[in-house]
Amino acid sequence: MLKDITLGQYFPGNSLAHKLDPRTKILLTVLYIVTLFCARSFVSYGIVVLLLATGVKVSGVAPKALVRGLKPILFIICFTAALNLLYTPGEVLASFWIFKITKEGIFTAFFMVLRITMLIMGTFLLTYTTSPIALTDGLETLLGPLKKVKVPVHELAMIMSIALRFIPTLIEETDKIMSAQKARGADFESGSLMQRAKALVPILVPLFISAFRRADELAIAMECRCYHGGAGRTKLHVLRYQTRDYLVLAAYGIVLAAVLTLAHFGL
């Protein structure tokens, strides 16, 4: 049932990838995406693939879990591949009806698919090895300088962590309400699209009411403990860069430089 859905997709572990500072991991992911978009040839793509493989190996995340993450975007991947395959101008290899398959098309399609797949897998690696709380914490610190231009960074991070915190609670609640309405003969599985949409009302109304009630209670509880936003607030777990963070970032810098140089020479 609903309980089986994994959200946040965090797999607890004790690998180097888990132990790295969340800020390092967020930075790495951003740099990784940059590298991916700079790569233009088999050589530089090879380096990025190698990079991802190293990341997966170090994190101890099952490659199967990463591949499973691709399922929801399978359609987009196929669609992009088809578009690139059929609409890239160049040396024609085969043609039928209004479509032409070109040599360049095959290459672009291949690289596009590779790029999207690697992009998704790389970002999944981040969420698989970083707990949602660590992730928001890291984001908040990284975006800290934006406070100077009046961006409410702390508040945004707080909203994010509260939202993440309540996902499992609301899933459980939905499960309960669904069971209760089913016990009164509600039918969610058959009927026309319109009937099914209508069948959701008995779930959504109680769910929203309970979500508002919880929000209200949480607000009061926070108020009672004198919460007043970010200014002057200290943290229980202060993020500190370790030697390993510097080492990993430095190593990554070298790889990025290599890929950029290769790209410069058109490789």
Partner: peptide, 26 residues
């Protein structure tokens, strides 16, 4: 017929009548 724990959280209709009638209507 099964009445869950804290069943008051599953009410959803505009009136008491409609809510009680949900089961029989189904």
């Amino acid at each position: 017929g099964l009445v869950f724990q804290y069943p008051e959280y599953q009410l959803f209709e505009e009136t008491v009548y409609k809510d009680v009638a949900f089961g029989p209507k189904n």
